[in-house]
Amino acid sequence: MGNFKKLLLIAVLSSAALTSPHTMAWAGTSADAVMRQAIKHLRVPTEQSRIKMILVNRRGQKRTRIVSISSSTTKGHDRSVARFNYPGGIRGTALVSHEGRDGKDTQWLFMPVLGRTRRIATTQMGDSFMGSELAYEDIKTLRVEDWSYKMLRKERFSKRPCWVIESRPVAGHDTSYGKTETWIDVELSVALKTMFFDKEMRPLKVVVSQGIEQVATGIWRARRHTFISLRTKKKTVMDYEKIVINAPLEESIFDQRRLAQWR
């Protein structure tokens, strides 16, 4: 299982979704600086959201899951808790994730059928996350130093002026991607589209972000992210029904021993 705090971040960040309201502050600077600024703006102290995740298979059939996620960043470490609200059969299932000092995650799962909270083993990086078009790699914390960035061009996307930034992995960084290309709204500093390429530089998947809005002062988020596999034509739509930034959160909600109390 993945870290839902990261899921929230990556929904915006792995696709290099940038949240700086001060576009002109970095205009003309290097793409590297742009990414550093973006990641800094993403790390908010607390964030709560309710996500409707629609998995569309290659035959167009949909499976819907609704997940409530709360996350917190304290002293640079992420913690998150995800609770499944829908479908009814899995209501009560909860997953908590703590990022350790070594950067590795520890996760616990509560599911009524399991009888008690169980610690779960770390998931493989390249696997699909919850059957979606997101790979676990996509929801790992993005480290600026793992990638090198290059400003490719300026062009319009969805009638908006965008920077197109290319990200390539630095030597030694373990990733299944050869590169990504991100269209970033020049004025809002939000990614509108990202193309993922495999090691042979063939297009792999694309994510398009829509409904960009300011959810808190200086904090911008997309209301919808649509991940489309260019190989399988499968799709994952993530609709953010609710986003609350920097509201106080009880520490106990991240306590794995209390997962069973929530129904």
Binding site: M1, L55, N57, Q61, R63, F84, P87, G88, G89, I90, T93, M111, P112, V113, L114, T123, D127, S128, M130, G131, S132
Partner: peptide
């Protein structure tokens, strides 16, 4: 119960992927 089956299959999909269920 069907709820129990839902949960068992959620566990299954965590490793095998949703396609295995589809």
């Amino acid at each position: 119960s069907s709820k129990e089956i839902d949960q068992l299959l959620l566990l299954y999909s965590m490793g095998a992927g949703i396609q295995a269920i589809d």
